[in-house]
Design a binder for these strands. Sequence first.
RNA 1: GGCUGCAUAGUUCAAUGGAUAGAACAACCCCCUCCUAAGGGGUAGAUUCUGGUUCGAUUCCAGAUGCGGCUACCA
Length: 573
Amino acid sequence: MKSELQKLLSQSLQQLNISKEYFDINISIPDEKTNGDFSSTLSMQLVKELQKKPREIAQEIIDNIPQNSFISSVEIAGPGFLNFFVKKSFYADSLKKLEQKKENIGKTNRLKGKTFISEHTDPNLFKEVHVGHVMTNAIGESFYRLAKFAGANAKNVTFQGDVGMHIAKALWGIKNMGEIFPEEQTPYEKQKFLGRCYVFGEKNFSNSSSAKKEILEINKKVYSREDEKQNAIYDMGCKWSLEYLESIYKILGSKFDHLFLESTTFTDGVRIVEENISPKGKKVFEKSDGAIIFKGSDLGLHDRVFINSENLPTYEAKDIGLFYAKWEKYNPDYSLTITGGDQKEYFEIVREAAGKIKSEWKEKTFHRAHGILKMKSGKMSSRTGNIIRAQEWIEDARNNVLYSINEREKNVIPDDIKNETAQKIAIAAIKYSILKVSSGKDITYDEKVALDFTGNTGPYLQYSYVRALSLLEKSEYSETDEISEYSLDISSFEKKLHEFDDILEASLLSLSSHHLANYLYEIASEFNSFYAHTKILDITNADYYYNLALVSVFKNIMKNGLWCLGIDIVEKM
RNA sequence: GGCUGCAUAGUUCAAUGGAUAGAACAACCCCCUCCUAAGGGGUAGAUUCUGGUUCGAUUCCAGAUGCGGCUACCA
């Protein structure tokens, strides 16, 4: 609806010999309905260019708006705001159009024919999956889904660390910690065992020079695979880790199109780095103190080691290999990577180096860094001391939800799906708390939200959906019913429903899913207010069919909007 | 030290340079003989400081203060 007005204004501007792309024309939706259905600051922005007073410009724009449009009137307000009022019949027509999109509501062709990769989660084998991974996952998954909605050939991928120092530390831990292999245990217990071994190895690496020496030896043999005995343990650990990762991806709701492994990218990474050392090849990398580095300091960044003096690749070289692998496999138009904020500078340097090897690697790569997730209570995981495991976090939340369900007066959730529902609600609470904040900032997670999820929370959105669903089931309404003009003023609830497409687009283009999250909260809040003040199922109401069309469109938007955030809907709660 | 990010109610967060800075939680007060009260309504409460640019600044620029991040062989 907004773009239709933008196009109208663009036509008017053409009459005034001003060319402006329609999507660059500023349109907002005022809070006060006396300020119109839509408002623009266009005339104020053109003051310099036209050397006229804003109210004069506003009048000229109005005079050149084509006749018989969907605009019923325009007012000039304050310093020169243009306030547009839209015909009621246009709202009725537009609502019906939205209704007819049904489950495709929000889907566009904006990125049709483009390949969009979203890389996220990026766990290491032999290490714990913690809350930070959940953050990366929630953010990356939502961009993957938004790209899919925009019609892109979207690919969801992750990059798993199965070679490198962390592996060597864990292997050393397995050897020296003296714990019995948990062969008969669950994948989660096996993963925790590996995590403990890693922590043990890491500790000794820092404190004992003999351990450090041994770990460096192990590291070499991980790459060379010359030690049969070590290979057997390593392969077993990899198998355990990968099994566990599969299960946590499932819990989080991510299906990956491809799992990149460091062990399969580092060879190409090393080769490409070596091909680009000065003086042979392009002068991208150079030798320094026995290592091969990229001199980021020439670009105002800092220097980084790509191949260390042991002649082994660091993460930097593996990442170069990943660039190569992504382009070999997908040849993307957009390649997005989500990481923690601490890797911001690191990533920028690798991207610069990659760009010097192949310019499109840099140009088509985008990076989004998020902040740290802190617990409001300051509580840390009791057993490990400094990390909170993703799985523990989710299980705690789920148990809290289950507790709430059982405490409730009205229990509408059938016993056989109680656990599954609680899980979906818990994931919604967690993911939404991450996604409603603009990414890049640290997030403070309040543990209470899982127990007390009123207000701006994921479960509130799920509940709003359930209410809408329940209304529709009890109504006489069907999607084919005709609707006539609304008898009352057009509500801000209805106006907001028309913004869905714009919000999805803005969220993707600015890589900020919080716009979508906050939008869904706004429409849910408006819907609940509408619900409380309107007898929607009263068939004698003049607006009976219109109101149910609103509910139906709301329901479809909520379902698809939540899907784009990676949040499952529930049917009863 | 160098580079860099952040600063908004008691708390956690919003606000493409635009109209009276929005919410949620916590506090206080109302509302289930109507569709799920996991809901709705109301009261009170905020832009770190000092300058500058602008018709207009939470937003842009400069400085101050406070808190983070990165800064060579980890990821």
